[in-house]
Design a protein around this nucleic acid. Structure first.
Lengths: 223, 223
DNA sequence: CTTGACACAGAACGTATGTTCGTGTATTAT
DNA sequence: ATAATACACGAACATACGTTCTGTGTCAAG
């Protein structure tokens, strides 16, 4: 029956959290009994027990004045993903990639909101991060100074995907379409007027992520 | 006490709708009694009475299985703007600009959802439209085949803004940074390695809109 | 004047909902 | 061994909630 190791998230905590998030994002927060049913708990008191813990862990908020008044603290507004901007990206800089499991409770310092409908499938929020392009070094990827690049954590890629690559031999970060060919990797610039570069399969090459989206915001003075 | 003119919205309908929208967007739909209190109605049966009408008017949806299960039908998801994609944009094509007041109720045939936080200020949804880039003719604007360009209706621009311009003499649509200088307009490509073009102030030049945002979606195969 | 649709109030009823309390059982610490 | 702790169940209870039924006043049509 697995005791809780000490202040950790058990499977039940997780199940309850997931259900609350799902229902909250759907617009209708659940009742105690609905949570119990979803998590396979027969007694409402056990749900209350877990809800109290989740509240203390600061993962949910409740309002005792209303029924069904429970919501995840991290406010992942239903239709929008807030993707954290982890730092700059430039040819001369290595890429900051988050560790496997960054706490998703983490206070979002800086982020972009992206409509979920724009994201492929049901991406895990955990897998996505954003970098802001610094300088003109990405112009061969048709990416401008100030653009925001949204990436998905990945260490390998399939042919035709645009990836962020760190080339240790050149001390260089680059964004290119990736193709694995007979004896080499072909890294193709997005700009069709530019030529690909070829990297030997023996040479070091670190894929840091797949490019999912590029967002460019232009300034317009108030009309 | 003002009779209902016949299938219209009275002040009470409006108050109730507003309250439901407010609460739904806040994440906690209201109970019958809460609606009553907000609308100054003393009897729950009267609230039910109005809720039934609003349901028939197709303004709200209810689920009798759950309490507080009421939501506005029109789902004006507060965090997201749906911007209609009106058609393609390419160097050889004129731009389709919507007339001053296109009905925003219009069934959204095709559109992009954009988080409101990404848009400058509180843009009027009416003023924005999107075009999808066709072909490689916009590469000097660092814009790719398939990119989505979000524009704001405009017929003039200030220096430094990126605008969509129709050049009648060349039969050409172009996206350039706009600068009005002594004797000419300077149209500067976004790509810093490319040279500006100059247009005489006497030559015809139609500004069709200001570029507000560019969105590039990349395909990634399922992990 | 009567009729009926409309807008509203109040009460009653059954179920939903959240809280609390008593109990039991492993596991861990002393 | 004993006590404390974490986890779980079920019952009981007061209140919240949605539905339904009865009644009242207004207004326009007949």
């Amino acid at each position: 029956m697995m005791a809780r190791t000490r202040r950790g998230m058990t499977e039940r905590h997780q199940k309850i959290m997931d259900f609350i998030v799902e229902r909250y994002e759907a617009g209708f927060p659940p009742s105690i009994r609905e949570i119990g049913e979803a998590a396979g708990i027969s007694s409402t008191s056990v749900v209350t027990y877990y809800l109290k813990q989740l509240t203390e862990m600061n993962l949910i908020e409740r309002d005792p004045k209303f029924s069904r008044a429970v919501r995840p603290t991290h406010v992942s507004n239903k239709d929008v993903f807030r993707i954290p901007i982890l730092g700059p990206i430039a040819a001369g800089l290595p890429i900051l990639v988050p560790d496997a499991q960054v706490a998703y409770i983490g206070d979002e310092i800086n982020g972009v909101d992206v409509a979920r409908s724009l994201l492929p499938e049901r991406e895990k929020a955990r897998e996505l991060f954003a970098l802001q392009v610094q300088g003109d070094s990405m112009i061969d990827a048709m990416i401008n100074d100030g653009d925001i690049v949204i990436l998905k954590r990945a260490v390998e890629a399939r042919n035709g995907e645009m990836v962020a690559i760190w080339l240790p031999e050149k001390d260089e970060t680059t964004l290119k379409y990736f193709f694995k060919e007979k004896n080499h990797y072909r890294l193709q610039p997005a700009n069709p007027t530019m030529s690909p570069i070829f990297i030997s399969k023996d040479a070091p090459l670190e894929i840091k992520g797949k490019v999912v989206m590029v967002i460019r915001k232009l300034e317009t003075t108030a009309a």
